[in-house]
Design a protein around this nucleic acid. Structure first.
Ligand SMILES: [Mn+2]
Ligand SMILES: [Mn+2]
Ligand SMILES: [Zn+2]
Ligand SMILES: [Zn+2]
Lengths: 139, 139
DNA sequence: AGCAGGCATGCAACAACAGTGCAAAGTTCA
DNA sequence: TGAACTTTGCACTGTTGTTGCATGCCTGCT
């Protein structure tokens, strides 16, 4: 993906493109799985952790990435689709966390079934993570 | 609930009843919502954090409590029903996390719909948390 | 009663992660 | 050029989760 295309992706979400942000976006695009802040940190070794943290925060606030809380206990991030508005329930999907390799996968084709919540519980977001064993870790 | 009844509840799960464990169990029974380690810590102020942590761990390993990972990022615990075996998908249920008061509710009557996962992804556990606003926080 | 072994508890310490404050550097625009 | 604003880097803090080790307590045996 060209720099121009990366810049456009950021601008489409009203994120001012900086060198740092382009690097982070490029890394995110290259990943099959959701990543943690530590993953990002060990890939972009010359960047500061705080900056990476704030970059992901900005991305999330502008709907460019979504957050997943899996059984590993720490936050993972993955790119949203271009047309995603992170709204419930249409733009939410199931995730899978492998307890062996600790990778977290997005299943964008598995949308969240709408839940019949008790009165006055107003949903805005869903964190649906199936834990188990992934194909590469199957024994 | 009498001490005898609490002891029986522990013994039914093959947990040796100690004074500490009875206190923790009693607290858990009294809670409407899932609790965090810190909640427990601030209730049982004279007990050590590590002991409480290990007590919850023991309870979890013996299927007395289940764990929830909500958007707060930290682990919460709630009692399982007596007949619960924490197996997928029958004994799993939906949870609700209120982003205002940060409480996490169990919805035991809302069971998890079975998901049609891609080949060779083997599920063992589900963490399904709906985030939003609870009745007491509705504006 | 005395003692050995095993389990539970408490204390100390550590690692990882999340988050904040502030100052320096860079960018935008008049 | 220079002011105003944004972004980045550094230092530091707080919380949670977790482990190691020593001590205490309970149990069962002699
Ligand atoms: Mn995803
Ligand atoms: Mn529950
Ligand atoms: Zn795996
Ligand atoms: Zn609430």
């Amino acid at each position: 993906m060209t720099t121009k295309e990366l810049e456009d992706k950021l601008q489409a979400r009203d994120i001012h493109p900086t060198a740092m942000r382009l690097l982070v976006l490029e890394y995110l695009i290259g990943q099959e799985e959701a990543i943690s802040l530590s993953d990002l940190e060990s890939h972009l070794t010359h960047s500061d952790r705080t900056t990476l943290y704030r970059t992901l925060k900005t991305f999330r606030e502008h709907g460019l990435v979504h957050q997943i809380h899996d059984d590993s206990g720490n936050t993972k991030y993955a790119l949203c689709r271009d047309d995603c508005t992170c709204s419930y329930p249409d733009d939410m999907h199931v995730h899978f966390y492998c307890s062996r390799c600790e990778k977290t996968y997005c299943f964008p084709h598995l949308t969240i079934p709408e839940m019949d919540l008790p009165d006055s519980f107003e949903p805005t977001y869903v964190n649906f993570v199936v834990t188990g064993t992934c194909p590469s870790c199957a024994s």
